[in-house]
Computed example of a mutant assay.
Amino acid sequence: MLIRVEIPIDAPGIDALLRRAFPGEGEARLVHDLREDGLLTLGVVATDDEGQVVGYAAFSPVSVEGEDLQWVGLAPVAVDEAWRGQGLARQLIYDGLDSLNEFGYAAVVTLGDPALYGRLGFEPAARYDLHCRWPGTETAFQVHRLADDALEGVHGLVEYADHFNRL
Results as ranks from 00 to 15, higher is better:
residue 3 I to Q: 14
residue 4 R to H: 08
residue 5 V to W: 06
residue 7 I to R: 15
residue 8 P to G: 01
residue 9 I to C: 11
residue 10 D to Y: 01
residue 12 P to D: 05
residue 13 G to M: 01
residue 15 D to F: 03
residue 19 R to Y: 03
residue 19 R to N: 02
residue 23 P to C: 11
residue 30 L to C: 01
residue 34 L to T: 00
residue 35 R to Y: 08
residue 37 D to L: 10
residue 38 G to C: 09
residue 49 D to T: 09
residue 49 D to A: 12
residue 52 Q to F: 00
residue 52 Q to L: 01
residue 53 V to S: 02
residue 58 A to P: 12
residue 59 F to N: 12
residue 60 S to Y: 03
residue 63 S to Y: 09
residue 65 E to K: 09
residue 65 E to A: 13
residue 67 E to A: 14
residue 68 D to A: 14
residue 68 D to F: 07
residue 72 V to E: 06
residue 73 G to I: 13
residue 80 D to G: 10
residue 83 W to E: 06
residue 85 G to V: 07
residue 87 G to Y: 05
residue 87 G to V: 03
residue 89 A to I: 00
residue 91 Q to R: 15
residue 96 G to W: 11
residue 97 L to I: 04
residue 98 D to R: 11
residue 98 D to M: 09
residue 101 N to Q: 15
residue 105 Y to I: 10
residue 108 V to Q: 14
residue 108 V to A: 13
residue 111 L to R: 03
residue 115 A to Q: 14
residue 116 L to K: 07
residue 117 Y to F: 15
residue 126 A to L: 05
residue 129 D to Q: 15
residue 129 D to N: 15
residue 132 C to T: 09
residue 132 C to P: 02
residue 133 R to N: 10
residue 137 T to N: 07
residue 137 T to F: 06
residue 139 T to A: 15
residue 143 V to H: 01
residue 152 E to G: 00
residue 153 G to V: 11
residue 154 V to F: 01
residue 159 E to K: 10
residue 159 E to V: 06
residue 163 H to A: 06
